[in-house]
């Protein structure tokens, strides 16, 4: 079976700045694989080890993402693919999902796609559902446990971990599954494997390769600002811990916070 894992590169933390053209400036912040995507990679590797076939790590990004793709290869992905084109630069989530869907259709033999539940920078969680609908496939989001993947019956079953409940669902393949942090413990690639993939360059497909012209987006960001600063706080002082505690509770009650 052919499993694809979608990978996004994100800044390690969100101490970002805003450029004058409204793009987000992540200069000086280390770039990493989106944390939830690491769990998706691990899940892909585990099922690939069980059922064999191909495990492709796929990114829609730029050359500067190759380091993350290599890390996924070192973890255990068998193949890689980078979708890159200047025309992909300003896509919104749904348009990006349509590009990835075009690549999946071109690959032709994909049975299952794992994604992280959301990226830690944009945080919308819209990519996996948008990809599933763009492909016309089943979707199973917020999966905390994959119970079964049956290539012969073309089905999967999984637990969706929602706010207060856990749903058990079955779905037909092909499917898009988004995973949460609880699902597994991503492996660390060995130094040997890291060395082995250090010079691997993923094949790159651009818009023309995918037969995409005139990509359109339905959203446009017209303003971006940092959050308003929080009003400066009040230090609760006192001669000892008991006095501080009493004063804190006084202030919480006076301010009708409790």
């Amino acid at each position: 079976m052919h499993i694809v894992v979608c990978l996004k590169q994100v800044p390690r933390d969100n101490s970002v700045k805003i450029n004058s053209d409204l793009s987000v400036n992540t200069d000086g912040i280390e770039k990493i694989i989106n944390l939830f995507d690491e769990y998706a990679i691990e899940e892909g590797i585990a099922w690939n080890e069980k059922h064999g076939g191909k495990l492709t790590v796929l990114s829609l990004g730029t050359d500067s993402w190759v380091e993350q793709i290599r890390r996924a290869l070192a973890m255990g992905a068998s193949d890689s693919l980078l979708l890159s084109d200047p025309a992909f630069a300003d896509l919104d989530t749904i348009a990006a999902a349509r590009v990835v869907a075009a690549a999946i259709n071109k690959l032709g033999d994909v049975d299952l796609i794992f994604c992280g539940r959301n990226s830690t920078d944009d945080e919308s969680g819209a990519f996996a559902p948008a990809l599933a609908r763009a492909l016309g496939w089943s979707q199973v989001t917020y999966v905390g446990k994959m119970l079964d993947l049956n290539p012969a019956a073309r089905t999967l079953s999984a637990e969706r971990h929602l706010e207060t409940t856990i749903e058990t669902v079955t779905a037909t393949l092909p499917a898009v599954v988004s995973v949460i942090k609880d699902i597994n413990s991503p492996r660390y690639p060995s130094l040997l494997k890291i060395k082995k993939v250090a010079k691997v360059d993923p094949p790159v497909w651009n818009a023309a390769d995918l037969g995409l012209t005139g990509l359109s987006v339905a959203t446009k960001i017209v303003n971006r600002v940092p959050p308003p600063p929080r009003p400066s706080g009040e230090r609760i002082d006192g001669p000892d811990a008991a006095a501080k505690v009493k004063k804190l509770v006084d202030r919480l009650l006076e301010s009708q916070i409790i």
Binding site: A97, G125, A126, P129, A130, Q139, L162
Partner: peptide, 23 residues
Amino acid sequence: TSFQMRDFGAALATDLDAGLAVD
């Protein structure tokens, strides 16, 4: 913006070719 509504809203927007804003 519950998990269920994120699953629903993004899928609906894609089917409708609509604009989407989450959160």
